[in-house]
Amino acid sequence: MSITYLEAIRLAQQEALASDPRVFLYGQDIGAFGGAFKATKGLHEAFPGRVIDAPISEDAMVGMAIGAAIEGMRPIIEMQFADFSSVGFNQIVNNAGTQFYRTDVPCPITVRLPSGGTPGSGPFHSQSLDSIYAHYPGLVILTPATVEDAYTMLLEAVQIDDPTLFCEHKYLYYHLKADALPDEALPVGRARIARPGIHATVVAYSAMVHESLRAAEELAAEGWQIEVVDLRSVKPMDTDTILGSVARTGRLLAVGETFPWGGATAEVISRVASEGFHLLDAPPQRLNSKDTPIPYHPNLWKVHRPTAQTIASSLRQLLRY
């Protein structure tokens, strides 16, 4: 049996619906049609009345979820693409994100954000919004990089009493496969050493973990042992694991697919610079997408975001220092 990242997301939702009567799904085209990516295929039939088509109204979709959560439900909202969550941005950051602090009443909603670039998707179907949401208080930002994490972290997202943005990467939907789903997982908030090494640390998350692993493989042929840290969640960010890795390697490269100004990679660098300056043998580096909208044509797109090649190139520079 082979389970894709996308299938793991579908199965996690199936499991959540089956095991928790408070769970319902709400999003565009997710009912009988099964979703634009088929992440809810068959669930409408299996759970009548609990997999609900929404109008093209991202603001009202999130608002609806907040109200339902107040009344004890556990909604999972599917944004058709993470990009469109900008229309629901206000509800996410100002309503969901402030509710617990303001009222002491938690807001347990899960918003699924099909994120990241795929060839030909262009400026409005390719964005990664983890960093902009992580900027706001009151939100949990999950960025699974593996089939196993996609499954267990989505199930955990539903159980978290706080608004949780589940950033699932579209590029991994079909590319990534696992033989079986896990019975246990690291807790949310804990990073994972995806590949051990001693010469430099790459901190990455989501699809960039795989680009980084390929880069590490490429450098292994040159004699370098690169450690790759998979953050798993951008917020909370596991600073201890990052610092532990930098303590071993002395060199740091943070890789993210978001736009370059600020964001998760800048946060990694900032934390290591302020808390682990003495651990560093070289100036910490970061690599993000280019500071332009995400281009349509694959010739442009594949250079816009970090890839194994550009990560390897950055690592070589870092190692030369």
């Binding site: 009345g49 979709m61 999130v62 339902a68 509800q91």
Partner: peptide, 16 residues
């Protein structure tokens, strides 16, 4: 943005 929250509270009761 408040109106959809009220919708959700009503929707919850339907789902319950």
């Amino acid at each position: 943005s408040f109106t959809a929250v009220i919708n959700g509270m009503l929707m919850a009761r339907r789902l319950q």
